[in-house]
Amino acid sequence: MVSPFWPSPAPTTGGEVWSRLANLVERQDLLLHGSRIAGLTELSPQSPIDHSPDDFSKRTAVFATEDPSWAIAYAIKTNECRSFLNACFYPGTEARSTHERRLFLSYAANVDGTSPTGPGVVYAVPRSAFVRMPTERDPTFGVITECQWASTAAVPVIAEARVTPEDLPAVARLHDHESVQDRVAAEPHGFPWMEQPAESGA
Rank of each mutant, 00 (worst) to 15 (best):
V2D: 10
P4D: 03
A10V: 01
T12D: 08
E16K: 09
E16L: 14
V17F: 14
W18P: 00
Q28L: 13
L30C: 04
L32E: 01
R36A: 13
G39K: 11
E42H: 05
E42L: 08
D50N: 14
H51W: 15
D54H: 09
F56N: 02
K58Y: 04
R59I: 15
A61K: 02
A64V: 04
P68C: 05
W70E: 01
A71P: 00
I76R: 00
N79F: 06
R82A: 08
S83I: 15
F84W: 07
L85N: 11
F89E: 04
Y90L: 03
G92Q: 05
T93L: 15
E94H: 05
A95Q: 12
H99Q: 15
E100H: 07
R102S: 08
F104T: 03
F104Q: 04
F104W: 03
A108P: 00
G113T: 11
T114I: 10
S115C: 12
P126K: 15
A129M: 14
F130L: 04
R132D: 02
R132E: 04
P134R: 02
E136H: 11
E136C: 10
R137V: 15
D138M: 02
D138A: 03
V143C: 12
T145K: 09
W149I: 08
T152W: 04
T152A: 10
P156W: 05
I158R: 13
A159M: 09
E160W: 08
T164N: 08
T164F: 09
E166H: 11
A170N: 05
A172P: 04
E178K: 15
V180N: 00
Q181A: 14
D182G: 06
R183W: 11
P188D: 12
F191G: 06
F191W: 07
P192C: 03
M194W: 01
P197N: 08
P197E: 09
